[in-house]
Computed example of a mutant assay.
Amino acid sequence: MRFTSIVVAAILAMSVQTAFAENAPETQEKLDIKEVVRVDPAPYDACGIVENTMVYKNSAGELKEFKYKIWGNGCSGG
């Protein structure tokens, strides 16, 4: 009985992981970065996932922005 429960739990865990992987957006983007100009620091007043920005120059010298998600620094545990 215990072995069966473990097998069922493992199968459920794998199927949930597969479902998330199939529904995840494509996040791998190749960036042409020659020089990083600025990376915004994580906000100290935000708790949770927030948007952040990196400004960079590409190989043509153009300034570009890359937006991504980070965990804010406002989540103090105590």
Rank of each mutant, 00 (worst) to 15 (best):
T53C: 06
A19H: 09
F3H: 15
K64R: 05
E29K: 13
K64L: 05
V16S: 02
I49A: 04
T4L: 13
G72R: 00
L63W: 03
E26P: 15
N58K: 09
G48R: 02
I6E: 07
T18D: 08
A13H: 07
N73M: 11
T18I: 14
A46H: 02
Q17W: 12
A13T: 09
A21W: 07
I11R: 01
L63D: 10
A46G: 06
C75S: 05
D45A: 14
A10E: 08
E26D: 14
A24H: 09
S76I: 08
E22H: 07
S15H: 08
M1E: 10
P43M: 05
R38Q: 13
S76K: 07
A60V: 00
G61W: 02
A42H: 06
M54Q: 08
M14W: 05
K30G: 11
T27D: 05
G61V: 02
W71Y: 06
Y68G: 03
I11G: 00
D32L: 05
K64Y: 00
R2L: 15
P25H: 09
G48D: 00
K64N: 08
Q17D: 10
I33W: 00
C47G: 02
E65M: 14
V55Y: 08
Y68P: 05
F66T: 04
I49K: 04
S5W: 09
K67H: 13
V36S: 02
A60H: 10
E26A: 15
G72Y: 00
T18Y: 12
V50G: 03
V7E: 04
